[in-house]
Design a protein around this nucleic acid. Structure first.
Lengths: 203, 203
DNA sequence: TATTTTTGATTGACTGATCAATCAACAAAA
DNA sequence: TTTTGTTGATTGATCAGTCAATCAAAAATA
């Protein structure tokens, strides 16, 4: 069985397995054994490739955020106008796979972990900044800089808040409703500020 | 030293200690020893009064949510009009002690724990429902039921989102800015719906 | 081509540390 | 003397991390 070039395959398998295990365990308190088992290898191999549990977990966060970023870049590229780009950002945030219970559970676990792990925190800060700056850049085309800052901050908070509320799975809000709520926020705050631009865009 | 009537004193000391330890540890992965030490008693005593670590943690969540509820009830009582009551709810949510880094860290840890502990989840669901229904009841006095539902959902999400974003401690938003953002959201969404009522309230 | 050597992949078994939980014992108050 | 409060010592389980050994492909050599 042992063939050459297994390293990248195993690394990916382990990172994916970690994401799955964290997701349905709902916490970073998972064992290397569980992860390794899920990936179909021995715990020793996980240590062999990642050195430590912490490192594997960090790689897992990194990989997850990377995927989110790729999706966002693609969606932004497909959108033409600033207003469309705002919608694209929102849509990606609530994409089905992002909004799955296990994903949200994992996401939450990462936030908790960030309180202790400086490296995890750094990744999440990058995510938060990116979300904010993507929103900001496109809002600036539709209203004044000050207003854009304020609306970006609010929209980012709303997106993250809808996420965390979803994690409780009581009165779950649908993907569409979450998107609608965020769009409504932006539309309503924007309306009195830039009637011209907003009108131009709305069909 | 042993005097009668220690039980409530010790329980409170342990619950408070747990909150503190969880707060600066930033996670529920804390040991009974740490908590007991912080409370100035032996680990065995913590087990004596709470039976298990899980139970102590659950009591800690309960106590924290209870305090938040008491604050809210008081603030609501002091406010007269529906619009004032909305502001009161927002103000309590971002109160200094609620917004302290350790409190936010603990809060986050509870959310993560809720993925595994049914009882913790129940408490948080109750909190989420209460926030929503407090907002809803007062919004209904200012606009239609459907609009009230929508705005309550959005405001609750924004409050929780501002919280979670705060936990990253990058570009921290001040208490005042968080309140302003949420107030602005409610004002702006309400404005076109009930000019009369909103006007009446705004001085 | 056949044979040997090297190297990467992989694991089972083990170790050391940590921790929740238990328990027997003791001290002071009632 | 009974009850309540309290602890030190211990146990048993869980886990991250290590290590020596194995196996098969690839590379080198004959």
């Amino acid at each position: 069985m042992p063939k050459v070039g297994m390293e990248p395959v195993r690394r990916k398998a382990l990172v994916d397995a970690a994401m799955r295990v964290i997701g349905d365990h709902g916490s970073l308190t998972v064992t290397m054994s569980e992860i390794a088992k899920q990936a179909g290898v021995s715990p020793a191999l996980a240590h062999h490739y990642f050195g430590s549990k912490e490192q594997l977990l960090i790689e897992t966060v990194r990989s997850h955020l990377q995927r989110l970023r790729d999706n966002t870049v693609m969606a932004l590229r497909a959108a033409k106008t600033p207003r469309e780009k705002l919608s694209a950002i929102i849509r990606v945030s609530f994409q089905a796979d992002q909004f799955a219970p296990e994903t949200i559970a994992a996401w939450l676990a990462f936030y908790a972990e960030a309180q202790r792990s400086e490296e995890t925190r750094r990744f999440l800060v990058i995510y938060a900044r990116r979300l904010r700056s993507n929103l900001l850049a496109n809002l600036k085309a539709l209203c004044s800089g000050d207003d854009a800052e304020r609306i970006a901050e609010g929209a980012a908070a709303m997106i993250d808040g809808l996420y965390i509320r979803q994690s409780l799975r009581s009165a779950p809000i649908s993907i569409e409703a979450s998107i609608a709520l965020t769009e409504d926020y932006i539309n309503t705050l924007l309306a009195p500020l830039s009637r011209k631009a907003a009108f131009q865009k709305d069909r």
